[in-house]
């Protein structure tokens, strides 16, 4: 197999992206292992994993916007991996809540799921992302054809649910929520102004 310069560059970008998206997890594991997560490591870990899930979700939404509007294609070329990292961190976030905060106490787990609106919203958001992760392979993409991109529009409601999940957690500062809400709205609004969507609306 002959590797062109372009292939090498692409692989290099893949390695850099993969490493930098895995880095937060490695860092968190290191902090946990060395007891540097503070007096309530469970809470710190859960918060961090959740935040990284949202950040990578936003990065996934950036991919097509950057490609179309700024002609920056690097994220688009690796969009699947970015999206899978978002799902991966979201699943770790749920796993951390269940293990480290609820200690797998089923009664608490059920109560949290049924009584807490913010948990329900986050949970539904995560559930919406799971089929997207499963069908992210080339095989599924071919199999589903046109329906694939329709299915993957689920990322929009998922982002909004995740955003609500975060907003409902606000205690005294709206800074984080404002930043995430701004970015998500910007990225969703950008989609409304895409040529094909504008055309559809005219027709």
């Amino acid at each position: 197999m002959v590797l062109t310069n372009r292939d090498v560059a692409r692989r290099l970008v893949w390695v850099v992206l993969f490493t930098s998206m895995a880095a937060p997890l490695i860092w968190l594991v290191f902090l946990a292992y060395t007891n540097q997560l503070g007096a309530d490591p469970a809470k710190a870990l859960v918060d961090e994993l959740g935040q990284w899930a949202i950040r990578f979700l936003i990065l996934t939404l950036c991919a097509s916007t950057f490609s179309r509007r700024l002609n920056v294609r690097v994220l688009m070329q690796h969009r699947r991996m970015v999206g899978l990292f978002a799902l991966f961190y979201a699943l770790l976030h749920l796993l951390a809540v269940s293990t480290f905060i609820l200690g797998w106490r089923v009664d608490l787990l059920i109560r949290e799921l049924t009584d807490r609106p913010y948990i329900m919203l986050g949970m539904v958001g995560l559930l919406l992302l799971i089929p997207l992760g499963i069908t992210s392979t080339k095989g599924w993409q071919k199999k589903l054809g046109r329906r694939w991109s329709t299915l993957h529009k689920l990322i929009y409601p998922a982002s909004l649910l995740v955003l609500m999940h975060l907003v409902l957690l606000i205690r005294a500062s709206i800074l984080e929520a404002v930043v995430y809400a701004f970015l998500i709205s910007l990225l969703l609004i950008e989609r409304l102004f895409r040529k094909e969507n504008l055309k559809k609306r005219v027709n």
């Binding site: 007096a39 309530d40 293990t99 480290f100 609820l102 109560r111 409902l168 957690l169």
Partner: peptide, 22 residues
């Protein structure tokens, strides 16, 4: 309960990851 979370239990600090001390 607090509207957003349960007050039935608490985590006694310092907790460690595999011993949340609920």
């Amino acid at each position: 309960d607090h509207p957003r979370w349960s007050q039935a239990t608490e985590r006694r600090l310092p907790s460690s990851l595999f011993n949340p001390r609920i």
